[in-house]
Structure formats: structure tokens, C-alpha cells
Nucleic acid binder design. Structure first.
Length: 337
DNA sequence: AAATGCTCCAACCGCGTACAG
DNA sequence: TCTGTACGCGGTTGGAGCATT
């Protein structure tokens, strides 16, 4: 079965978008809402592929996009989230309001990848989480039409409200804040119902959520909830006070934690004294999230595979700890399970 | 000032998945 | 259940702009 082209490509324009095209697309989406990307170019009078329109909207024209450079806080979030989620840019972007997956991916590839590569010369703690529920597999695919309808309704409502609020200068900021809070609420829900990783939570889905889901802003919530999405507790463990902090050693990076015993890998000389002195010896926790299978949620924790060798863990104040036990205690999301 | 190399980012491409008929 | 379609995602590419020689 041959794959049908996403659109009729003959006569369609490619390459950079002009200001006029941007205006047409933005105006059309403002009036009609997102969705129906395939028919959008024709209806809007654009000589573009629907995919191209969607991408342009998501990555450039959306009002809630944050402009400017990635801040240090955002960079740290990206690093931490990438360490956990891998190249799942849309999931990472879902936790960085106003940033797109494309932007984060580009930033990673241009600014962070090389630094991370240095990191990889060290010992790798390769946690095979293949029995985690759900994740690993790509979560592409279309949004249900019900969600699309809700999204459209939400969009229309939002447009009306926006028009009401015309004249107020902080509309974009407010929307961004709203979106940020919505993400938080979603995560809260994930915590309160751990089993909801595999269950839709349709009743709680608001129009905002539907819209966000339909627009791909937060693919990890609502009916399209990604089972590997990070819950609020996971996020706070990752990013909140007491979370593992990234520290840079003389010849690479090191993920350290100031909230408890550090995981320090000294691959050459074995156990040594002060944790801080060991930061230059490069440690990495490379969580292998590939091949996760939702069908094995029931027995997800027993077969955790720890794929590392010759690792010793130094506990501040002296003594050693079983590496596996230590690493387990340091894995933020295992603590509360 | 010109040539060359490098970086960064917008956009494209193909695949995987969900969904409707 | 099967098939075709629509969409979202991540990998890749092209080229504009900057830096270096």
C-alpha cells in the first residue's frame, strides 16, 4: 500500500514564508480556529501544503510563543528533561510554556548536544525502563474529531473573549500564564490518579485542554495523555527546590544532587573521598526510555535492568553504598511509587 | 574586501499512530 | 477487521548570516 502524499504538491510553494502569507494564515486561524490543516490552505487561499501551514503556525505565528533567547533556567529544564525523556521534544516543550518542540530541538542540537557529548565519555548508568507503562513509542497520530470540535469551540470562545478584552495590553502574557497553569493542573491530575496513565480523563478536560491538545501544545494531557508524561511530583523532583542540579566539572558535565547523597561515578580509581572533588570525573545517568510498552504496566518495576559496571558510590561522610540501591534512591520518580 | 568555513534556525520530509468508514 | 486518510512527531536539510583567514 503506497502512502498517499500529504497534499497535492504540484504548484505549491515551498521555502520561506512571506509576510503576506503569514498574515493570511494568522487571519484565517483567528477567524476559523486551528485544525483541518489539509483543507486550510485551500480555504485560506494559500499555495502551501497543510503541513507547512501547521508548522508555520505552531512554530512562528502562535500568539503565546515566547520570543528571545533561551534563559538559563529554561536551559537547565531542557537538560534535565532531556536526560529523562530523550529526544521527545514535544513532551519537553510541553513543560516550557511558549517554546516549541522545533525550537528546543534546534537549541539542543546547536548549543547543548556537543556539551552533552563530552559528558558521554564518562560511565553511563543505563537504566532500561522498558517496562514503564506506555512511553517510548512515538505518540504521533491525529487528534480525535471530538477533541478537534472541542478545540474549535474553545478557540471561538477564546476569540470572542479576546475581542472583549481588546485594549488590554497584556493579553498574550495572560494566555501564556493561563497555559502554564493549565499544564500544572494537568500534572496535578496525573498525580492524584496514578492509574490514569492509561486511562482517559475526559470529564476533567476543559476546552483549554482540548485546544492545547489539538494544537499539540501539551500532548501529554487529556484524552491524548502520554503515559510517559511527567507528573507534578516528577516535575518538582526534577526542577523544584532540592532537585538534582547540573554542575560542570573541569572536563565535562556532572549531574549532582544537593538534596541527598550524590551519585558519583569514579570509573578509574574507585571510591574516593569528597563528592565535590569528584565532579571532574564525569558521571552520566543515561536513561534508556526506548521500547517502552504500555502492556506491561502491571509488572513494570520488577525487571528494571541496571546496565552499568564497576560502579561505586561515595556517600558524603565516608563509606560506600550499593550502587543500585543508591541510584534507585536518587531516581526522583521512584521515591514515591 | 573577498573567500571560505561555521553556526543556527526555519522548513521540509517521511514515518508512526489514531481514527473513520 | 481492514483500509485509507489526517495529523503529529522527530530527523534532516538548505541557506542566511556571522566569524575567521
Amino acid at each position: 500500500m503506497g502512502r498517499a502524499p500529504c497534499c497535492e504538491k504540484v504548484g505549491l510553494k515551498k521555502g520561506r514564508w512571506t509576510k503576506e502569507e503569514d498574515e493570511i494564515l494568522a487571519r484565517y486561524i483567528k477567524e476559523q480556529g486551528e485544525g483541518s490543516w489539509r483543507s486550510l490552505p485551500k480555504n485560506a487561499g494559500l499555495l502551501r501544503c497543510g503541513k507547512s501551514c501547521r508548522l508555520r503556525w505552531i512554530n512562528y505565528l502562535r500568539a503565546d510563543l515566547k520570543r528571545g533567547n533561551i534563559s538559563e533556567e529554561e536551559e537547565e529544564m531542557i537538560i534535565k528533561l532531556h536526560a529523562t525523556l530523550g529526544n521527545r521534544w514535544s513532551l519537553i516543550a510541553g513543560h516550557l510554556p511558549g517554546r516549541t518542540d522545533n525550537e528546543i530541538k534546534n537549541y539542543w542540537n546547536s548549543h547543548l548536544r556537543r556539551r552533552a557529548a563530552d559528558f558521554c565519555d564518562g560511565v553511563v548508568v543505563n537504566v532500561d525502563l522498558s517496562k514503564l507503562p506506555g512511553g517510548g513509542k512515538r505518540r504521533g497520530g491525529r487528534v480525535s474529531r471530538g477533541v478537534m470540535a472541542a478545540a474549535k469551540a474553545g478557540k471561538e470562545k477564546k476569540v470572542k473573549e479576546k475581542e472583549k478584552a481588546k485594549g488590554k495590553s497584556k493579553v498574550a502574557e495572560a494566555e501564556q500564564q493561563q497555559q502554564h497553569e493549565q499544564v500544572k493542573e494537568d500534572d496535578d491530575m496525573a498525580v492524584s490518579t496514578p492509574s490514569s496513565h492509561s486511562q482517559p480523563c475526559a470529564t476533567a478536560q476543559s476546552e483549554e485542554q482540548a485546544q492545547a491538545s489539538a494544537s499539540g501544545l501539551t500532548s501529554d494531557d487529556g484524552p491524548e495523555e502520554d503515559p510517559l508524561a511527567l507528573s507534578e511530583e516528577m516535575m518538582s523532583a526534577l526542577l523544584g527546590p532540592g532537585s538534582p542540579k547540573l554542575e560542570v566539572g573541569p572536563d565535562g558535565w556532572c549531574m549532582d544532587s544537593d538534596s541527598g547523597p550524590s551519585v558519583v561515578v569514579d570509573s578509574d580509581s574507585g571510591p574516593t573521598g569528597d563528592v565535590a572533588q569528584e565532579l571532574g570525573d564525569k558521571a552520566i545517568m543515561d536513561w534508556d526510555l526506548m521500547g517502552l510498552d504500555i502492556s506491561t504496566a502491571g509488572d513494570m518495576w520488577d525487571p528494571l535492568v541496571w546496565d552499568y559496571a564497576d560502579m561505586d558510590v561515595v556517600v558524603p561522610g565516608g563509606g560506600h553504598q550499593q550502587p543500585q540501591e543508591e541510584v534507585m534512591s536518587d531516581l526522583f520518580f521512584l521515591d514515591y511509587i
